[in-house]
Design a protein around this nucleic acid. Sequence first.
DNA 1: TAGATTGTTAATCGATTAACAATC
DNA 2: TAGATTGTTAATCGATTAACAATC
Lengths: 240, 240
Amino acid sequence: MESIDKVKGTFEKRFAMKGPQVSTAVIKRLPRYHRYLGELLREGKLRISSAELSELMGLTASQIRQDLNCFGGFGQQGYGYNIKYLHGKISELLGVTDGFKAVIVGAGNLGHALATTHMFERRGVQRLALFDVKEDVVGTRIADIPVYHISELGDFCRREGVDIGVLTVPKEAAEEVSDIMVNAGVTGIWNFANMELKIDDPRVIVENIHLGDSLLTLCYEIKVKKDKEKAEESGESKNE
Amino acid sequence: MESIDKVKGTFEKRFAMKGPQVSTAVIKRLPRYHRYLGELLREGKLRISSAELSELMGLTASQIRQDLNCFGGFGQQGYGYNIKYLHGKISELLGVTDGFKAVIVGAGNLGHALATTHMFERRGVQRLALFDVKEDVVGTRIADIPVYHISELGDFCRREGVDIGVLTVPKEAAEEVSDIMVNAGVTGIWNFANMELKIDDPRVIVENIHLGDSLLTLCYEIKVKKDKEKAEESGESKNE
DNA sequence: TAGATTGTTAATCGATTAACAATC
DNA sequence: TAGATTGTTAATCGATTAACAATC
């Protein structure tokens, strides 16, 4: 009896209440696993070992096994991982199979680009509508997605049960627009405005995109490289 | 004599040869410091302590001091940090003051959006040109940036000394286009194609952007939250 | 069964935090 | 000088890697 309770307790702790105890380092790697496994699946490969996947992805086999085991035993000793099964499991974990509903707010260049990509549908996310203030776009369709006036945003989100709001509005409008969505029950904000949204509602998840930070990281590396080359040159001429 | 050598050695190790030993965790935080300090500068604030900045940014004061000290002693005991000075120093570190030259390859929706933002000029990066294959855009200007045919890409980069190539071409073309740029002396690739560029030339730095991964991370968090709410509901009705 | 490879525990490594002496 | 706050060393924490028993 004791052993049954123990096993059950362990099971529930690890699999039923999954989420809170998984570190963000692991979570951030999940989409990448998903990507590589999707690729392998399309290639028709059936199984893969942690060793083989590690070489492909530039990780250690140990880390892969450790990562996947945060969510359950997806592999099989002596065999490895069934690619289709593992890909499916990770899809579930990531909510790809949940068909989340999204709206894009801001029909500028970036909103336009996001309306056009297949990035959303590939990940099971439906884009229901775009919203903007400009009268010349309101009422049109972009990539077959209807554009409504921003005054309808709150009602629309409430009515349709929108999960994700994509923010591509100017910095100044971001806070106001996100408040409207949060009040209408939107639980996730994908924020492209160049500022960090501070939302006090703990039920709301914000994912900030800072393209500018990424550009600067690249610049930093380029600069370090250039400095090093310069140092080597002058070092050579001086010391030899 | 020994002490002078020792001091000099320490100095050179820490400040002259800076770069290689700074962890990527620190480097990734630099653009964020730069952003916050720029904001404070615009507000006209003159000085800030690590404690105050830590509260603003949601870090520990200890970490801020530790981070900044990887690059030099930018503060002053009993006073804190001079915002203008510190912002300037970080700008230097990040190469904002170096006026790096960039080209954007791919004049689709994303290329269009990147041509239109002020993201580059705000960070001291010049966009010299766009490149595409489509005859109807070649020869035009987008946001005052000229669009050339991709056949001219290599010569242009070599002639102008382009530092950064921004890749917004379809996945299939990414490898080929990046090869052309690398051969023409481009040292940094900002890659928006949905694949990880593998470039064997160690002199070239690649910064991959995976918007899809970010979207999936958001989806994961939403799913965890939803699952938890569901579990709480059923738990309540069952146990009480 | 023997071979392979996972799941998992223990060891290592690195990054963050705490503490405090140096110093403005 | 006294007070404040950095720069830096030491302690803690967490994440990665190594190792190996479990098991297919």
